[in-house]
């Protein structure tokens, strides 16, 4: 084939790139460098973060199954931990209740036996055959005095303040059993009734006050001047009552005031 007639293509030109080769001495240096890098790769340990990054990459690639497993583990741990906590809490509450009940009972018995019983016998003059004080207290005691006993089954924690109240109530009912009766002193249920009444819808206090005209006239009589005729007196009384009407008092706020426990009216 004549060189001048040869067809030159892109592939022929690119084949020239194959002839771009480094000199032979280059490979000696290449060998030494790559051997040094290879030894370094063998000797030098990988840093800890390299392993951690591989672990994170593995977890990220399998994030869906890992997430599901983590959710299951958390749910299982939560159920197991909560169950153990509830069991432990029940045991602790039971022990605390028993301890508190024993302490309050012991205190009550001590109070009854040491101070209350002699005083009751001496001052009230109870008969010798009277039932023991503890029985009387139990029969008259309300649920507040029975609260320490009931604490054996309730989960509310006992405090020294509550124990003191219980002891004071026991002491009070032991000191005055007659006063402790609900008919005389009133039951502590009354407190609940009063509290219940407070929950009723609020009403205007002055609107509920609707004194009769006679009462108002009787109250204002000492302040009225003495008239000779009964007609003039009735007229003056009507004027005063008109001026002192509740509507006018509401309209002029400066005519009444409150100071401490007193209510003032200014005419």
């Amino acid at each position: 084939m004549n060189d001048s007639e040869r067809r030159i293509t892109v592939e022929d030109l690119l084949r020239l790139k194959r002839a771009e080769r480094p000199p032979p001495e280059f490979w000696a240096r290449f060998e030494s460098e790559i051997r040094a890098k290879q030894l370094a790769a063998i000797v030098v340990r990988r840093p800890l973060w390299d392993g951690a990054s591989r672990v994170f990459a593995f977890v990220y690639r399998n994030r869906i199954p890992f997430g599901a497993a983590a959710a299951l583990a958390v749910a299982w741990a939560g159920v197991k931990f909560e169950g153990g906590l509830l069991t432990g809490r029940a045991v602790a509450v039971s022990a605390a209740g028993q301890t508190a009940a024993a302490r309050v009972s012991a205190t009550a018995v001590q109070v009854a036996s040491a101070s209350v019983l002699p005083r009751t016998k001496a001052e009230i003059g109870a008969p010798e055959g009277a039932p023991p004080l503890q029985t009387a207290v139990d029969s008259n005691a309300s649920h507040l005095t029975k609260a320490p006993v009931a604490a054996q089954t309730e989960s509310a924690p006992r405090t020294p303040f509550a124990d003191g109240i219980g002891i004071a109530l026991v002491d009070f009912r032991a000191t005055g059993p007659d006063l402790a009766k609900s008919g005389v002193f009133g039951s502590d249920r009354e407190f609940e009734a009063s509290v219940t009444s407070m929950h009723q819808p609020a009403a205007e206090p002055l609107a509920q006050m609707d004194p009769s005209g006679e009462r108002l006239e009787r109250l204002l009589a000492p302040a009225l001047p003495v008239y000779s005729s009964s007609g003039a007196r009735a007229f003056a009384s009507d004027r005063v009552k008109q001026k002192a009407s509740y509507d006018r008092m509401y309209e002029s706020m400066d005519r009444y005031g409150a100071g401490g426990m007193s209510l003032e009216f200014r005419f």
Binding site: D3, R6, I8, D12, L13, R15, L16, R18, A19, E20, R21, P22
Partner: peptide, 19 residues
């Protein structure tokens, strides 16, 4: 940073002769 074309390769020498 190019390596030189080695003309000891017969293919490349023939191609350069044609060019």
């Amino acid at each position: 940073s190019l390596e030189s074309i080695r003309e000891d390769d017969p293919v490349s020498r023939e191609l350069v002769d044609a060019l």
